[in-house]
Nucleic acid binder design. Structure first.
Lengths: 353, 353
DNA sequence: TTGACATATGCAAGCGTTTTTATTTCTTTT
DNA sequence: AAAAGAAATAAAAACGCTTGCATATGTCAA
């Protein structure tokens, strides 16, 4: 009895049933319901103008009714574009990089891209592995952040057809795009300001000097500034350490022992550590010691005393990098693959007025 | 003449040419070169054990030689798994969320997933839009961070078959997974500590009370602590503001005018702002004013005085959320969809010893 | 040996789109 | 009213892989 009733309904419900049971509505379902071909539905979905308004309307209604959502994976396979870009970042939880990341994502969203975010810890191995992984996922482009670009990595970059932009990272030969500030000049200005205040022993506090941004840009700027002020360059005043709060704190003692009275620091976290370390030892900033940091992140503002800083427009570097990448992906004409953004120095309380 | 020469070579070079010219090596190329079927290559690539070792070796060699990389998009279409999860985050550049994100990505990597990161600014509209976008990209799961879950959003969650985990966000009915600490107890303990030090007027400084985490958890804990100490609850001591450094600074004046001598603050950035604002007005912390913050991020450590804080294990919350999501995606048995991680209070210099 | 099973491999049908090519339907123009 | 061209639509072949099913090969006990 029950069975026969069910059977009676079966043929009638067949189509509806199909829709209910199948978890995913496809372009084919829409086409059938709207009485057009898949091609037409595709055109409607993609905003192709070659569709009669009446047809468009009809299709749109069915899409609405069935709650159809195009499958981006199938699209990606057919069109060979994923509208996704890979972002390789040393560490998202570092405010310097996360500021860049935010700029990247905002512009990405603006151009209808999504970002796949992958942490590398700045590890050469992981960077390559992560890059290959992203390429396997068919990202349309890659934004790379990292202090240091190995030959192996550069090799991978050029081996693939996928466009790459370096955000706040320096590459000797500019095969790929990149967005930076002029680190050499910025450093020079900062050190100049310190020299103007009469300091004789100005420290250069940095991460690894092997990283081109430190060794080939900032250090040069530091040296030039010293030279122009007739100050002698001493290796003893160059401190190579990690980009960590703790490292900065620990450095305080050593730095004081060298008779240093001013420092240029390449990283905010490090700079805050040093500031706190000095303050804890009774040093008055800026009276007894002046200090300039480099990233103008929230940390520079929050620290007490607040820190005078080079202002790298972090968000903007990210945003411009992504914008550049969109052009590259779009095969547009690029006037200049390497863009240099302006920097300034924000005076706060870690230097005298 | 030239033409005929070319023609002569064509048949000979045909296969090689194909390989050179076609930018992408496919599974088909590997199969042909190795003299096996695509299915076998697929099995090798996917580590399926049903392949004779000799065959496996041969295929692997060809893969190596041709530098073949499986196309994850095609794989995704065929297998209906993308090994990608979506992460909806209010703002990556906020250290609270980026700490969570780092935990998420590390565990994701561990389980061979990638994350698509999307900023929502905590905006209800954007959250839904971003979610739909991620679902269109066929992510295998979603991790959501946000202060506040609208009905619309909850609707989208339950409408899709894709598993969702809330990281450090509260949902009344637990249809989806979530990972948190016990905000009520944590707040209660913090306020209790302040009360123990004899404070009569303890402020509750928060973001929007409409966010369940504030209004339904923390505020309750605050009230309970007051009650147990026979202190009267006054609306005037509840401050609702934004999670921003500036807001905290500006709050200092108002808070002093209310005769407050201690505060529990729900966000580190806000807390540092308040601390600096108070200090700038000559208030001595902790002698004249005690303060406890909530996230134990780097900021709490960096601030001077350093801030006593509830320690939410941010990284762990992210990591556990992702781990939970892997189980959900894998359809494993889950003992408990809602996991509550332990918290502690880290005493620093913004409270008396 | 042979039959019975297990193991290894191949075949081909999807997966849900885009896109090229072909076809149909409208407009014009004369 | 017919021819020609433009506009709208349909048909079907990719895209690069996975996977169920069929087939082939190998192994062992009887």
């Amino acid at each position: 009895m029950i069975f026969s009733e069910n059977d009676k309904f079966k043929p009638i419900m067949k189509e509806e049933e199909k829709l209910m049971e199948r978890q995913t509505i496809t372009i084919y379902d829409v086409a059938r319901e709207a009485g057009v071909s898949m091609a037409t539905v595709s055109r409607v979905v993609n905003g192709n103008p070659n569709v009669k308004p009446a047809t468009r309307k009809k299709v749109l209604e069915v899409i609405e009714r069935l709650d159809y959502r195009p499958n981006a994976v199938a699209r990606g396979l057919a069109s060979k574009k994923t509208t996704t870009v890979g972002v390789i970042i040393p560490d998202v939880s570092n405010i310097f990089f996360s500021s860049l990341a935010r700029g990247i994502d905002d512009v990405a969203t603006m151009y209808k891209y999504n970002i796949i975010l992958a942490n590398s810890d700045g590890d050469d191995q992981k960077e390559i592995q992560v890059l290959n992984n992203l390429l396997a996922k068919q990202v349309d482009g890659v934004i790379f952040m990292g202090m240091h670009i190995t030959d192996a990595l550069r090799g991978e970059f050029s081996r693939s057809k996928t466009p790459v932009v370096l955000a706040s990272s320096i590459d000797p030969d500019d095969q790929v795009g990149s967005v930076n500030i002029d680190y050499k000049s910025a450093t020079k200005e900062a050190v100049q300001l310190l020299a103007d205040h009469g300091h004789q022993n100005i420290a250069f506090v940095s991460g690894s000097l092997l990283d081109p941004i430190n060794g080939k840009e900032r250090l040069i700027g530091y040296k030039e500034a010293l030279q122009e002020n007739e100050l002698k360059y001493t290796e003893g005043l160059v401190f190579e350490t990690k980009y960590e709060y703790k490292s900065g704190e620990q450095l305080a003692e050593r730095i004081l022992n060298c008779g240093v009275t001013a420092a240029y620091v390449v990283d905010d976290e490090l700079a805050v550590g040093l500031t706190n370390g000095l303050t804890d030892r009774g040093i008055k900033i800026p009276e007894d010691f002046e200090l300039i940091t480099s990233n103008n992140s929230l940390l520079a503002e929050i620290a007490r005393p607040s820190l005078t800083s080079i202002s790298q427009p972090l968000y903007d570097i990210g945003a411009v990098s992504m914008r550049l990448l969109t052009k590259l992906m779009n095969k547009e004409e690029i006037d200049e693959k390497t863009v240099v953004l302006p920097h300034t120095i924000i005076q706060r309380d870690s230097t005298k007025a």
